[in-house]
Amino acid sequence: MTDEIILTDLHSHTTASDGQLTPSELIERAIEKGVKVFAITDHDTTDGLAEAHAYNQAHETPLTLIDGVEISTRWNSFDIHIVALKVAVDHPALVSFLENQRSLRSERAKEIGERLHKAGIEGAYEGAKEYAGDAAISRGHYARWLAEKGYATHTANVFKRYLARGKTGYVPNNWGSMANAIDVIHQAGGVAVLAHPNGYKLSAKWVKRLVREFKEAGGDAMEVVLGQQTIDDRSQLIALSVLNNLSCSLGSDFHFPSSWIELGRNLFQPQGVHWVWQSKRWMEAK
């Protein structure tokens, strides 16, 4: 990349995980929205990337498409996500790691279904599985089914009432450590990015601790510009990245078309920021 501002979105999801657009549909939408550099970062899988590349290359004006994956980890009992960018998707360490992640997802999904069943909500596992298709079942799939069946007005309310910590369908995560995930990302030649640091409902003090320990575990960058955030939030995250010597990333975390999240929307690139694509690890990656 040059100093020219190029519309970049490095966090998105397809039907390979809990997104609602196929990889081809997502690429088409990104092109329509004027995105030039784009990463698909499905939860714990790279299964959508082959289709995405095939469709992208067949397009008249292809994107610069970055291979990515969003990895779930455990930190002080919290689900913490790490976006891996520019990974070699066929690297044995990454392939083995993601196979294990899918197994862990399957175990957790079944337990969620059992807990909802015991609470009198029948058919939730089967309903979530129908939404998931060939993808691993996630809480997002459960949320869609529960909302469709009228247990809440929309998916966000489903999480609050049934799937959040302490609620009926909540199952503690069973992921590995941040350090292990970062090590695998580096083995696969990728860049490890802390996803949406303000999205875990942590106090400011705990966010600072999370960012510090992410860096200590070998992390490379953190998301500081998101599709929905205040100017103060953005400034605070940029300051945290500087304090911890982390590069900065940005992304919409797009899952489906909506009025509040869109590919490339509000992904500003403030001047004076050290972006992840300017980092040595990024430039050394394939």
Score class of each variant (00 low, 15 high):
S258Y: 14
Q271V: 00
G166Y: 09
G169R: 00
T46A: 08
K215D: 04
I137T: 10
T61C: 07
I121W: 00
W282A: 00
E262K: 15
H141V: 02
T168D: 01
H117P: 01
G189V: 07
H154E: 09
G19N: 00
A128N: 09
W277Q: 03
V95S: 09
K208R: 14
H43Q: 12
F78Q: 15
L7P: 02
S252G: 03
V83E: 01
D220K: 05
G127N: 12
G48T: 03
K201E: 12
N157Q: 14
S96F: 07
E262A: 15
T15R: 04
E25Q: 06
Q229W: 14
D233Y: 04
E262T: 06
A135N: 06
E114F: 05
L21Q: 12
L65W: 14
V276T: 06
G68Q: 10
E114C: 07
H154T: 04
F159H: 03
L163K: 02
L202H: 06
A221Q: 04
V69H: 00
P172C: 09
F268A: 07
L104D: 08
Q228A: 08
H43N: 09
I185K: 05
D233F: 02
H274N: 06
M283A: 13
A217D: 10
N180D: 11
Q271D: 01
R144N: 09
N244C: 02
L267W: 03
V276S: 01
A54F: 11
E70C: 08
D253Q: 05
L146P: 00
G251P: 00
R209N: 13
H154F: 12
E4G: 12
D67T: 11
A195M: 11
M178I: 13
E32R: 08
E70P: 12
D42S: 03
F214M: 01
Q228E: 04
E114Q: 11
H11M: 02
L237Y: 03
V171G: 02
E4T: 13
I6N: 02
G68C: 13
L263K: 04
W206E: 13
E213Q: 05
G264Q: 04
S249G: 00
I6T: 11
G272R: 10
L65H: 11
V83T: 14
Y200W: 11
D18T: 13
Y162W: 15
V69A: 02
S138D: 01
V184K: 07
N266S: 10
V83A: 05
E130M: 10
S24Q: 07
T155G: 08
R108T: 04
K86D: 13
G199D: 03
S235D: 14
I40P: 02
L226V: 02
T2M: 12
E114S: 06
D47K: 14
W282G: 00
T230L: 01
D253H: 06
